[in-house]
Amino acid sequence: MNKLLVSPSPHFFTRTDTSAIMFDVILALFPALIAGIVFFGPRALIVTLVCVVSCVAFEWLVRKIMKRSNTIGDYSAIVTGVLLAFNLPPAIPIWMAVLGSFFAIIIVKQLFGGIGQNFANPAITARIILLASFGTQMTTWSKPFGYQGGVDAVASATPLADLYWANPWDLFIGNVSGCIGEVSALALLLGGIYLSFRKVINPLVPLTFIGTVFVFTWMLGENPVNHILAGGLMLGAIFMATDYATTPPVLGGKLIFALGCGIITTLIRVFGNYPEGVSFAILLMNLLTPLIDRIPMVNPLGKRKKGGAA
């Protein structure tokens, strides 16, 4: 009789858990990291490592201080660190990267209860705080391959400043100045395809986000191809607008979220004072997520329709 096991459901389990998903995300981020190192040299790797190490250290420390179970084993702090580094210019002072990790992990993530409880994306919020605080350092861009003994290593602006005439092939490959992880659309797309294939993200979300930007910039007389290839759009759409904790859980909500992100990004890029609007768009839509969740989009089983039988 010992062979007959009686247990409540569920009876089937999947091996997928938080650490497996985060591991997939880390793998998907690797092409963009390699692209960043190729274009911006060892400095990009140093900034990324500093962000990762400080994020994990802050996570360990704050869980220890708050006497809670330690969560560094789920790799989420590593993902936050990599995403934060990808949103920073390669020449950023190291202590600013550490300060950004502090804001991301302690203020945005752990003070609200840790993984799954934060209402805003930690990496995006930390980037915005750094941008609001250190405007000069956050917009000092290195030229691609400038580390190979170039005389004029510091560029004045990203392609976003003069987007209409930028070379789309350079934007696609990543041969432009910008943040560490955002320059190469090709590398980010590889990661996005991997995540879609592994069913970690729903490809409709980044497609809606990018498609919205494409359509609206086209309607406003901009160069839509360059708009979707430049800046942090690919990075934000694939890796940040698909974050589980800070975006709506059901598909309809996800699409509203992505649509809103696209509209706000376009508005800031075309009419705003900042050249880039992806991070602001994602943060604003993060804040709207609880409201989007209140729109009923799934009919409960057996719900009666108005004036009719079930």
Partner: peptide
């Protein structure tokens, strides 16, 4: 000391 401009902004005030 490098001032952190965020704290002078209204958002920093709320924080």
């Amino acid at each position: 000391f490098q001032p952190i401009g965020f704290f002078s902004s209204p958002a920093g005030g709320f924080f």
